[in-house]
Write a protein that binds this DNA or RNA. Structure first.
Lengths: 139, 139
DNA sequence: TCCTACATTGGACAATGTCTAAGTCAAGAA
DNA sequence: TTCTTGACTTAGACATTGTCCAATGTAGGA
């Protein structure tokens, strides 16, 4: 993740304690926190950090292409640091757990020409839903 | 759409002017209104209809499986009356227009077993994004 | 026609996100 | 090192979308 910070500094990003903490919170695999969760986790390390800064920083990371915004449920957006490997998402309908998944083939090829209505299609999002092993385990 | 109302009445739905108007607003192809848009359109025919009733009615239609909830942008949910034909969505990144599209093949088959993390996968949502003919037309 | 359980209403409240004005600070300049 | 300045952060007001509740109204069966 320090790679990320160095890279952004090279792009003119001013390196502040707040941004460092937000970047640290977003480090890891299968990480998909809401802005509120990021704020809570960041506050644990830097109590004065404000909600506005978390929103600003997340927005910048998204604009810079370093973090993806994911809307799986129409509630709060989630932030996914796995921005450099093409992937889709698998969501547990019960507990909301999200896994990053790699598909076979290009989902774009499933959309026939006559179904494109003249659009220049450039992006596909696929979301799988089901019950995760923990939620389907006998209580 | 009166089919729909009759069907629901058979299921014990009380038929009120408000519900009739909401159902009428949702009649048509490629219809994907937000709750607010439904409220505005319904108000044009029945000025006293309240926001709460629109939300209630939409929620009931979704529970009854007669309308689908679509979250394409992390903003307001949209309501899709095309609930009886399997389909996915194609969204204009610029103006937000949405088309219903039919895919070739089952998108579930693109998710390999090892990528399922032990989930019982039961549902797939695919959203294509691009520029619609109107938005890509020379100004 | 009358009853009553279900539906509707308006407004308060909640969750999520955006904006602004004032204060603070990172990092280049001297 | 210290200074300077424009970018960053902050608190809190505000906006949007959605939910809840108590009071009132009404569809449809008796």
């Amino acid at each position: 993740m320090s790679d990320l910070l160095e890279r952004l500094r090279g792009r003119g990003w001013r390196l502040t304690a707040q941004r460092r903490v937000v970047a640290e919170v977003l480090d890891g695999d299968h990480v998909h926190y809401t802005a509120d969760e990021v704020h809570a986790l960041a506050s644990a390390r830097l109590p004065e950090i404000s909600r506005a800064t978390v929103y600003n920083t997340l927005g910048e990371l998204v604009s810079l292409g370093e973090v993806l915004e994911v809307s799986t449920d129409g509630r709060a957006k989630r932030y996914d640091p796995n921005a450099h490997h093409e992937h889709q998402h698998l969501v547990c309908s019960q507990c909301g757990t999200i896994r990053d998944v790699q598909l076979q083939g290009d989902p774009l090829s499933a959309l026939p020409e006559p179904e494109r209505y003249g659009f220049q299609v450039s992006e596909v999002t696929v979301t799988y839903r089901g019950i995760c092993p923990t939620c389907s385990a006998p209580s």
